[in-house]
Design a protein around this nucleic acid. Structure first.
Length: 822
RNA sequence: GCCGAGGUGGCGGAAUGGUAGACGCGGCGGACUUAAAAUCCGCUUCCCUCAAGGGAGUGUGGGUUCGAGUCCCUCCCUCGGCACCA
């Protein structure tokens, strides 16, 4: 038997034993309350780095904690296995994406197993296998039949490097591709969309979700709800069909201040509304706009640009003639692509008016307005002026009155619009689930019949990116027969966004073996919703948003009976290394393997929890981990070397009492900290406990039985954090296998309570003395004691006592009169 | 520009409005050793002092309070998100 702590040996041993005994396998056992603890599954990039461990190890600790607390815990793991890097690897290294992905999974699974988590590997889910993506395709068909999937031509985000379209959510920061950082361009393409906008309103509702405020805010901003009115401005133009231009405004109360109308350069009426003599100038401007990148166009702080079309509309409320301009700050995709400009009350419109010397008319008076021109736009509510019959009304009432009038006269109506666009799910790439659609010259768009699923990804496709789907060139795949008329037909060659795959994987974990359905409905009913979902915040408006949409759609289709997938969400922070987020693309990854080999998985787990609060992340520091490793060694020595009480007739009852107090105080603290994900302070209190145990051991002042009890509690508290070491020490001290099937210790509140406290004595708020007193001390006793202290006397001497403040069990503050100046 | 998180020793970080710096790293000193490593023990915010003791101190400047790292206001910096959305 090894006498020194040898993590390599014991970790391997227990991992094999746990697997052989199936101790972490889970079933729908109703005797214990269920708890679904889910960690975002990793993309199969090749290696897990310390950043992955930071997401996974603490969540495993929490899942183990809940398990010991008596919950029936489902804590599964799988792989998000479709995606571009697999293809890029294929292109760069000549290996098939399937082989690359499966090799990576092999390696990552090995790494994950070395962590010693409670994953039930029978439930593993791999999204790129036909058993799985068959159902991803099946959901597409369900959405199609429910009217939630449609095909449309639209200007879409195009990544020239990835050679594929991207969803709006995948364009980040300054208009760059979320995956590769390339500047995204626009392309007009026929694509498949999911009608996520149908759920815009419901997606705004986070009222039953225990989620971080900032994620909820980001989702709300992403939906971008605006309430206002759509108003028709009459066209004063001969010879065109349209009688009016519709604008959207959130401030119908400012309509009397409209001094020009703005259209997006892409607005369909622009060419018809351009006066002959302005044609050249307008066309030149439009051409200039086209040359601007999306990012340039949306960036703030650039000078306003635009041209006058040479035509006019009439303001329906006052009949005024209003010139029509085009400008690139009006976006064709938002609202109606047309804006009524009110320069007095909108910053951008004012800038535009000043640049082009257009009139500015105040129609909402600020509270103390003198009637002068405003130097800056006034965008708040106020009193309406220069507004005909509405003048004098508070603008909030004017808003209502004008809307009512517009609706009565049918000049406009109240409207709500959203910034959210439908979810573009087509990708012109190989390594994804094929969209199960067939195009027939006779029958048009025909969905693949359910029985024909999966539409298998042909293994032999040429997948070099060409800007078109690689599947297009795979004749055996493309050519098929129409399911309706049996005539010759072509398959859709685009694949689905991989976020489709990750929108339902958490359902599959409940029943991965199910063959005739995506999941076993009873098991989903048992386990879902996920009780705790942990992962990085980078998915706020992507994965987390899509998954919510998916569940709402499945609910409406009748496949699930709940509204939200993730009841509670927790975002861990980011692991920084060399000043940057650790990631393979940044080339600053630290592999856990060498640390696991050298110091053990328990040490790596422990160190990651010790760097700081989980939600804040932290800097990976090589030298920090040795602290945890040394501590685990001390733990080993503490438990494996014999304790012998000193030879005394009776072991002092006072010492035993204090010992019990420390034990229960520690249980209380560790339990509370684990519940709050405060792993760093939990470890600190376990360390303090071991420091205390060492002292006790040295002095031998407790009985043998109490010592054993303390070790017993300590190992139970250690078990979630260092599962291997705890199991080994548990076994070595003759306790029954397995520690991980033991109940979490309960603390005795009486014993955990402090009996003695250090009373702080302050004079005028400054610490001057401290004294240890029984916790039961009364106010009068405490004050008397404080005033009687020798050291305090020297401060009080000769000064006037104004007040004595007593804070129970904490402080006596003696307030003296300030010194009179001479 | 707006929203959110954060700013505390040499470093990572602790602190229900009540002892600032728990716990760990690093450093210094000591024990063990022929020696080193490992381990163990002690010290370690800064300044004055042999010491006892005293003073200063949680990004900046104010305020509230008997008492502020913590609450309020001002400003500065770092990180994350959003950003011409009518």
């Amino acid at each position: 038997m090894a006498q020194v702590y040898n993590p390599q040996e014991i970790e391997k041993k227990w991992q094999q034993r746990w697997a052989a005994d199936h101790i972490y396998e889970v079933d729908e056992d109703n005797r214990r309350p269920k708890f679904y603890a889910l960690t975002m599954f990793p993309y199969t990039s090749g290696d897990l780095h310390i950043g992955h461990w930071y997401a996974m190890a603490p969540s495993d600790v929490y899942a183990r904690f809940k398990r010991m607390q008596g919950y029936n815990v489902l804590h599964p793991m799988g792989f998000d296995a479709f995606g571009l890097p697999a293809e890029n690897a294929a292109i760069n290294h000549g290996i098939h994406p399937y082989d690359w992905t499966m090799q990576n999974i092999e390696n990552m699974r090995r790494q994950l197993k070395s962590m010693g988590a409670i994953y039930d590997w029978n439930r593993e889910v791999i999204t790129c296998l036909p058993d799985y993506y068959k159902w991803t395709q099946w959901f597409f068909l369900k959405f199609y039949h429910a009217g939630l999937a449609y095909r449309a031509k639209a200007p879409v985000n195009w990544c020239p490097k990835c050679q594929t379209v991207l969803a709006n959510e995948q364009v980040v920061g300054e208009g760059i591709c979320e995956r590769c950082g390339t500047l995204v361009t626009k392309k007009d393409l026929e694509q498949w969309f999911f009608r996520i906008t149908k759920y815009a309103e419901e997606l705004l509702d986070h009222s039953h979700l225990d989620w971080p405020e900032r994620i909820k805010t980001m989702q709300r901003n992403w939906v971008g709800k605006s309430e206002g009115a759509e108003i028709s401005f009459w066209l004063e133009h001969e010879g065109i069909e349209q009688k009016c231009i519709k604008v959207f405004t959130t401030r119908p109360d400012t309509i009397f201040g409209v001094t020009f109308l703005l259209l997006a350069p892409e607005h369909p009426l622009v060419s018809q509304l351009t006066a002959l003599e302005r044609k050249a100038e307008v066309e030149e401007y439009i051409a200039w706009c086209r040359r601007q990148t999306e990012y340039d166009r949306l960036s703030l702080g650039r000078e306003k640009t635009g041209v006058f079309l040479g035509s006019y509309v009439l303001n329906p409320l006052n009949g005024e003639r209003v010139p029509i301009w085009i400008t690139d700050y009006v976006l064709p995709t938002y609202g109606t692509g047309a804006v009524m400009a009110v320069p007095a009350h909108d910053e951008r419109d004012l800038e535009f008016a000043r640049k082009f010397k257009l009139p500015v008319r105040v129609v909402i008076a600020p509270p103390d307005w003198s009637g002068e021109e405003l130097t800056e736009p006034y965008t708040e509510a106020g009193t309406m002026v220069n507004s005909g019959e509405f003048s004098g009304l508070p603008s909030e009432r004017g808003y209502e009155a004008i809307c009512a009038l517009l609706e009565e006269k049918k000049w406009g109506k109240r409207t709500v619009i959203y910034r959210l666009r439908d979810w573009l799910i087509s990708r012109q790439r190989y390594w994804g689930a094929p969209i199960p659609i067939i195009y027939c010259d006779k029958c048009g768009i025909v969905p693949v019949p359910e029985d024909d699923l999966p539409v298998l990804l042909p293994p032999d496709a040429e997948f070099k990116p060409s800007g078109e789907s690689p599947l297009k060139y795979c004749q055996a795949f493309v050519n098929t027969t129409c399911p309706k008329c049996s005539g010759p037909a072509r398959r859709e060659t685009d694949t689905m966004d991989t976020f489709m795959c990750s929108s339902w994987y958490f359902l599959r974990y409940t029943s991965p073996e199910t063959r005739d359905a995506p999941f076993d409905a009873a098991k989903v009913k048992f386990w879902l919703p996920v009780d705790l979902y942990t992962g990085g915040a980078e998915h706020a408006v992507m994965h987390l948003f899509y998954a919510r949409f998916f569940i709402k759609a499945l609910r409406d289709i009748g496949l699930v009976d709940f509204d939200e997938p993730f009841a509670r969400l927790f975002n861990q922070g980011t692991i920084i290394y060399r000043g940057d987020k650790m990631s393979k693309s940044r080339g600053n990854v630290i592999a856990p393997d060498e640390y696991v080999t050298e110091l053990g998985a328990d040490a790596v787990r422990g160190y990651l929890m010790f760097v700081g609060p989980w939600e804040l992340g932290g800097e990976w520091n090589d030298s920090g981990i040795v602290g945890i490793s040394r501590w685990l060694n001390r733990v080993w020595n503490l438990v494996t070397t014999n304790y012998t009480p000193v030879c005394r007739d009776v072991i002092g009852p006072e010492d035993e009492k204090e010992f019990l107090h420390i034990i229960h105080k520690t249980i209380k603290k560790v339990t509370a900290d684990l519940g709050k994900f405060r792993f760093n302070t939990m470890l600190a209190s376990l360390m303090e406990f071991t420091n205390y145990l060492s002292k006790v051991k040295e002095s031998g002042v407790v009985s043998d039985s109490l010592w054993r009890e303390a070790i017993n509690y300590f190992l139970l508290l250690l078990a979630p954090t260092a599962p291997h070491l705890a199991e080994e020490l548990w076994a070595r001290s003759g306790r029954p296998y397995s520690i991980h099937n033991q109940a979490w210790p309960e603390y005795d509140n009486e014993l955990a309570r402090e009996e003695e406290i250090t009373l702080i004595i302050q004079v005028n708020g400054k610490l001057r003395d401290k004294v240890v007193v029984p916790a039961s001390i009364s106010e009068a006793e405490a004050k008397e004691l404080a005033l009687g202290r020798k050291r305090i006397q020297t401060y009080i001497d000769g000064k006037k006592l104004i007040n004595v403040i007593y804070v129970p069990k904490r402080v006596v503050n003696i307030v003296l009169a300030p010194m009179q100046p001479e």
